[in-house]
Simulated scan of single mutants.
Amino acid sequence: MPEDESWEYSLYIPNDPRAVTVSRRTLRLILTMHGLIRLVDVAELLAAELIGNAVLHTKGPAALRVRWSPPETLRIGAWDADPEPPDAPARLADVTGDESGRGLALVKACSDLWGWQPLSRFGNRGKYVWCEVGAGQPGVTRRAS
């Protein structure tokens, strides 16, 4: 499928720590098959942080959504069953050795845009946390944070 066509994939996952690895490998395959190998490294990092947060901080199922919108936007998002908003990320430079706070700070630092919205799926309330990266040539383009 050419890069100038839109597409979207969703991967529904249980609340299981292995979901992060499954999500990363699935995302790698999707991007490779669509000729977007240049986005794999940053996309895997972003998906791992979003799905990791969903699995770590909620008790229910989750979902990974990946959407390509021409000409150059890849949106990666994670739905989880917790309707509470994510903690606002600190700047990556401000995050200390604490285990919490680094995930969304990495998402903020490595993406062009990020956000969240309340969402319902199958009658369950939850939220959708997403980020976008550009796919400019020859590498990934990023706006200053």
Results as ranks from 00 to 15, higher is better:
Glu44Asp: 09
Val20Gln: 04
Ile76Ala: 00
Asp98Pro: 09
Arg25Leu: 13
Tyr9His: 11
Arg143Thr: 11
Thr96Asn: 12
Asp98Ser: 14
Arg18Met: 12
Lys59Leu: 11
Thr21Met: 03
Glu5Val: 10
Asp16Thr: 08
Leu50Asn: 00
Thr32Lys: 13
Pro118Ala: 12
His57Trp: 14
Gln117Met: 10
Gly115Trp: 04
Leu56His: 09
Asp98Lys: 09
Val40Glu: 05
Ala109Thr: 14
Ala90Pro: 02
Asp41Glu: 14
Ala62His: 11
Gly134Cys: 07
Leu46Asn: 02
Trp116Asp: 01
Asp94Lys: 03
Arg121Leu: 13
Asp41Cys: 05
Pro86Leu: 03
Leu56Lys: 15
Leu92Ile: 12
Val133Asp: 01
Val133Lys: 01
Ile76Asn: 00
Arg142Gln: 12
Tyr128Thr: 01
Val95Leu: 03
Leu92Ser: 08
Arg67Gly: 01
Asn53Ser: 06
Thr58Lys: 10
Val95Asp: 01
Glu49Ile: 01
His34Leu: 04
Val129Gly: 00
Ala144Val: 12
Glu3Phe: 03
Ala54Ser: 09
Pro89Lys: 06
Val66His: 05
Thr21Ala: 10
Pro85Asn: 09
Ala54Pro: 00
Ile30Pro: 01
Cys110Trp: 08
Arg65Tyr: 08
Leu74Cys: 06
Arg18Asn: 10
Asp80Tyr: 01
Pro70Leu: 11
Gly134Ile: 02
Thr26Gly: 04
Glu72Lys: 12
Asp82Ala: 13
Arg18Ser: 13
Ala144Asp: 15
Leu45Cys: 05
